[in-house]
Design a protein around this nucleic acid. Sequence first.
DNA 1: CGCAATTAGTTGTTACAACAATTATTTCAT
DNA 2: ATGAAATAATTGTTGTAACAACTAATTGCG
Lengths: 154, 154
Amino acid sequence: MDNREHPLGLDHSLGFALGVSYRKISALLASRLRPIGLTPEQWSVLARISEKDGQIQKEIAERAGKDKPTTTRILDGLEAKGFITRKIGPSDRRSFEVSLTEQGRNAAELAAPVERDTIREACAGFTAEQYRTMMKWLDAINSNVDRILQPETE
Amino acid sequence: MDNREHPLGLDHSLGFALGVSYRKISALLASRLRPIGLTPEQWSVLARISEKDGQIQKEIAERAGKDKPTTTRILDGLEAKGFITRKIGPSDRRSFEVSLTEQGRNAAELAAPVERDTIREACAGFTAEQYRTMMKWLDAINSNVDRILQPETE
DNA sequence: CGCAATTAGTTGTTACAACAATTATTTCAT
DNA sequence: ATGAAATAATTGTTGTAACAACTAATTGCG
């Protein structure tokens, strides 16, 4: 991006703005998912599990955009509520295969439209095209950051 | 936004994508601010304080996009590190006026370019125009969510 | 004036997130 | 086949966030 364009108080910081929007949407979603017994982050993990049964935690973590410790603790919560079960991996005893319970499947079916509607309302006034562009830009940011972190860590 | 356009696995959830991007940028920023002794959120508050001396906590909270309890605790951290001082409000003894210490000013001067550069790198490939559009859209989302929450809470 | 409602800030609780360190298992290179 | 390196998951610690409940000071209405 060109340099001298945004003078930069934090009013102009995308990182900051991203955080504010994320927190606002999360708070709204949290209030609506509470009756189902899910937090937004538990839902984001549960949704991944419901897409494919028997994934191991590492896979779930990657697909949910969370690190392994965070995933472990979210799964602990989901297991405590009876939404998932863990089964020792048959081919690799270090891993756990995660499955939905009947209750978990019910919760996921209730939660999906709640999230969909909430996002729609939050994006009122956006065209579908703008929505897609936004998603594409967020992806580009993710790739940029991944690329920066990669060589730094090596 | 039009309804039937994004089939919606979580791959298509803006809320989710926002969270992933926010966390990635935060993590990168955290690693670079650590030598200065600041976390990203501490920096977001310190930046607001450095914009105007003597604000009370309520003002700072609003401008930083955080609630009062969170602001209290971030200020606790900044005070413990010697970056700010709190002084009882002369006209209202319930409030505290917050000021930077010399150390706090130094930290802010170090942190500002670190954040600016980090955001620039994260937005590599964006035109200034696209950057502004993105900010505008995030603002629109914030307004939408605020509008939804307002009547619900009343 | 006087007391109820409001406001500024704090504290408690629960839930996430990042990082580091640890355990248990598996893989690989000799 | 064996010991070092890698891998899956967990635990510990610190920091952030939302919500509710609380204290203390201030405002404003009757």
